[in-house]
Design a protein around this nucleic acid. Structure first.
Lengths: 194, 194, 194, 194
DNA sequence: TATGAATGAGGGTTCATTCAT
DNA sequence: CATGAATGAACCCTCATTCAT
């Protein structure tokens, strides 16, 4: 019965839950293990979270807000669309490395269970960000003419997939530079492009 | 009750399991429901599969082999690298639409539970396919010089992510044409490319 | 895993549940103990009853219907109101002895938990029966003039209390004859009555 | 926080416990709620009562002694047995209205859990009181000859049941006058009595 | 082959009780 | 005296798995 500040305990639980949930997924994760990993009793978990679902949702939301806010802030301060998109990639890849386990959990349970709407919103927001950058790039002549909506969807999808690959496959590591080159230049030789 | 051939029963179970697993995920799916959906008794399932895990793995493998083989076969018959890659995309996107529920299951449980190695192998095989196409394209002068390994990883990642987006987000639908344009031409105006 | 007929198992559970519930009350009774007493596994209980509450309600209802129906049937066949009431008492006291443990449970949880309405209805029905007999008795001149509604309530209350006493206090045993004498004659000497 | 005298706190707890226990029954009542209702901390409860059981027993005993003593005192001062019994009924019915919630708790948990002996003793004492009154009445010629022990048991049982009905069924309200009439005169027309 | 009743370990959750402050 | 975070045993319920038929 070590006395800890409530905030400290809550934080410990969140960290432990993150580890366990992302390793096992929501359904297979169990409270006993989370409690143990947090160095707290089973009942202790229920002091801070009403139930398993609440704990999970709280986890997802807080992390998503944290990441989301960081991504938003940096988007505006770029000089050109190219640079903005480049920054966007850089941030996402950095985040991917930093929150690898969250990414896994996030993707794994996406579309299932709860918090679906929050997740969908998160991705949609990111997509809108990209779309805006693309339109800016087309206006400034940096980017070729294309359907910004479609392009944004593809780029966001690609980013997601690349991040997923990095999280899942140990031998995949994509740097911002590589990603830039890929997205900006495409695969064809200059002369072959339409 | 009804005498069925073993193969018939097994097939029914697999189909039912696919539906249930992809809807609920591995952990929340339960044998009772699968049996019911297959029109068979609970015990009947255990006549064909040693346990839940076995059933799941068998599912993943059979589907993965089926899809994988179809993808492999068609890869060789293209006239140019550009066409080969284009075909590859087309096939994958078609598959994605056709086996949407499998894709979801596949991604959801990827990296967790069992069958991880089989899944990894599947993706690696696909990556190698792409890598070969890229090298062929570079030799023929179709594609610009780049690190084929890196590029293959990025393309495979992108493809995965785009397929994932299509499966998860109702408002995302990417056509082969859109994907070609994106991957081949990149985002920059012709003049801006390096 | 002894194979029993479903009905046999269900009956065993009901008997065991009756014993445990009436000994401990609803809240303190636990499924493990009921299962054990029924010679069945915990999960087995849930094969026949959706949950603890369902088991309890099923118990109460079936028993109440059984007892209620027996009481109803015999009420009509009496020659006089005196005889009818006398029969009514006899039946209730017999029931009390026969279903002692149920009586305890019934009273204990009355007004609490679930099945309250069913219980209330049961008592109200009994009261109406008595009221009818009283009115018949007053019409025939057997019974003195009184408020039938009030009288029925008092008689039903008395009966309940006497049965309760018999169930709770080991040294209380009331025979139909004693009860008749009490209810019919009252306590006063003949000359003192108004 | 607020310094209170121990006695004040203890009283608050007892009142709160009475309310909660009688609403939910012993098993479902919980200390947290009692503490809250008493405006005291959880730990505070344990300063005055060793545990839940102790609190409950203390509750029952104090209330029972209080009620019991009031009933005893008034019993002696009656001029006739008829009046004594009448007073007895009046007091009990008054008590029933005044301590409705206690009655419910009392009956509900009677025969179970703890404090059984105290409860039994309480009722036995009341019964003895009635028995004495009956014998006095028979000696004075007020009451007809009967088995005083049996009669006392029946009267006590009836009283209990009537009080129970009043506590449980909203539509039952018995006045002392009604009860007197019932017990003293019985149901039969004067001429029909034996 | 096929059935489905039966098993029992294990998971989510509650709550009486303790104790550092 | 008083607090309330922490504990952990015990409860209800689920479900993969078995096996007598």
């Amino acid at each position: 019965m070590n006395k800890r500040s409530g905030i400290e305990s809550k934080k410990k639980i969140i960290d432990a839950a993150m580890a366990v949930f992302s390793t096992k997924g929501y359904a297979k994760a169990n409270i006993r293990e989370i409690a143990k990993a947090a160095g707290i009793s089973v009942g202790g978990v229920y002091l801070y979270f009403r139930n398993k679902e609440e704990l999970y949702k709280s986890l997802i939301n807080s992390k998503m807000h944290y990441i989301g806010s960081r991504l938003e802030i940096t988007a505006g301060s770029a000089e050109s669309a190219t640079e903005a998109l480049s920054d966007f990639f850089k941030l996402h890849l950095e985040n991917a490395l930093k929150h690898k386990e969250f990414i896994l959990l996030h993707i794994r349970e996406h579309g299932f269970a709860f918090g679906v709407n929050e997740k969908r919103q998160f991705f949609r927001k990111q997509r809108t960000l990209i779309e805006n950058i693309i339109q800016r790039g087309m206006r400034s002549g940096e980017f070729r003419k294309c359907n910004a909506d479609h392009m944004a969807k593809m780029i966001m999808g690609s980013l997601r997939g690349i991040i997923l690959s990095m999280a899942l496959d140990d031998d995949v590591h994509i740097t911002p530079k590589m990603l830039n080159e890929f997205v900006f230049n495409g695969l064809l030789t200059a002369g072959k492009r339409d």
